[in-house]
């Protein structure tokens, strides 16, 4: 009997402790996510996640030191589209940036430099290039010199809706074949593209945002895979890594959420082309296209 009690105490301690170790970072505000890391942005990859919240206190993801802040309209500052923002350094490697804020007095007057998890950096605002009151959160690994997907660090978000895959097509320089197709497809090299997105539950309207992982399979063999883990500069170009090291133009078409899923060599026969998309909560969507190649 005593052994059984000890087992349950140890099990509970493990669950409690494990949870604390795994999720030592906290959400700065309630996570009502509008856009995600590495989705197609205004002029390249989004380096942040955008969270919607009205006039809400913003707290650090972890204890950290204030190393940089900027007030919108300050004469000494560059005109940042990030509006008013603050940057905290956590330990030696991790850095977090909170943008589009109304900065707190303690930040603006530099009354304190060390911010605990319960301290307030500011309130969610509409400063800079922001269409909706909220917060943009960036996380950066100083050692690896890369932006990190904040969802990799923060506690999981409840989300039950599956991503959407639509309007897939095979593209060549002078021809586009929408999928599915009943017509035979000429053999050769074809680029596969599709609109791949997730829907935000933060707003009641249709609000598409990016997904976490996209794969392409040809007859069961993986031909393309990308995960939105980090954004790193390689050879003067920002690439989503570690998966493929793809530059923005290699992954996204200018048109909405259309993604380029690689080029495949189609040989004669009946082929199965499958696109798989997964969001960060693990919800997965598979879309299978079966067609004849001649």
């Amino acid at each position: 009997m005593r052994k059984r009690q000890l087992f349950w105490v140890l099990a509970l301690l493990c669950i409690w402790g494990g949870d604390r170790i795994a999720w030592s970072y906290q959400w700065p505000i309630e996570p009502r996510i509008l856009s995600v890391f590495a989705q197609g942005g205004a002029d390249g990859f989004e380096r942040s996640i955008r969270i919607s919240a009205n006039n809400t206190e913003v707290k650090p993801i972890e204890e950290g030191e204030l190393i940089f802040f900027c007030s919108e309209g300050s004469p000494s500052s560059l005109p940042y589209p990030l509006g008013s923002f603050a940057v905290l350094q956590h330990g030696r490697t991790l850095r977090s940036l909170y943008a589009h804020l109304e900065l707190s007095d303690s930040v603006q007057r530099m009354e304190k430099t060390n911010y605990q998890k319960g301290d307030v950096i500011g309130k969610t605002g509409l400063t800079g290039a922001s269409s909706m009151v909220g917060l943009s959160l960036f996380t950066y690994d100083l050692e690896a010199k890369q932006f990190v997907n904040p969802l990799l660090l923060l506690p999981p978000v409840k989300d039950t809706s599956r991503p959407i895959i639509r309007n897939a097509q095979l593209e060549k320089k002078d021809r586009i074949i929408p999928l599915p197709t009943a017509e035979p497809v000429p053999k050769g090299m074809w680029e596969v593209t599709a609109e791949v997105f997730d829907l935000s539950s933060a707003v009641p309207t249709f609000w598409p945002m990016g997904v976490y992982k996209v794969s392409l399979y040809l007859n069961g063999q993986e031909r393309f895979m990308v995960t939105m883990d980090t954004l790193k500069e390689q050879g003067g170009v920002t690439r989503v890594s570690p998966s493929e090291g793809l530059a923005y133009d290699q992954l996204y078409s200018k048109e909405g959420f259309r993604m380029k899923l690689g080029t495949v060599n189609l040989n004669p026969g009946v082929l199965n082309l499958e696109i798989v998309a997964r969001d960060f909560a693990g919800n997965e969507k598979n879309q299978l296209y079966r067609f004849r190649v001649e």
């Binding site: 942005g41 205004a42 002029d43 380096r47 005109p79 940042y80 589209p81 990030l82 290039a129 960036f138």
Partner: peptide, 8 residues
């Protein structure tokens, strides 16, 4: 022109 996220 300072680009949207201040990185360009």
């Amino acid at each position: 022109v300072l680009l949207t996220d201040g990185c360009g």
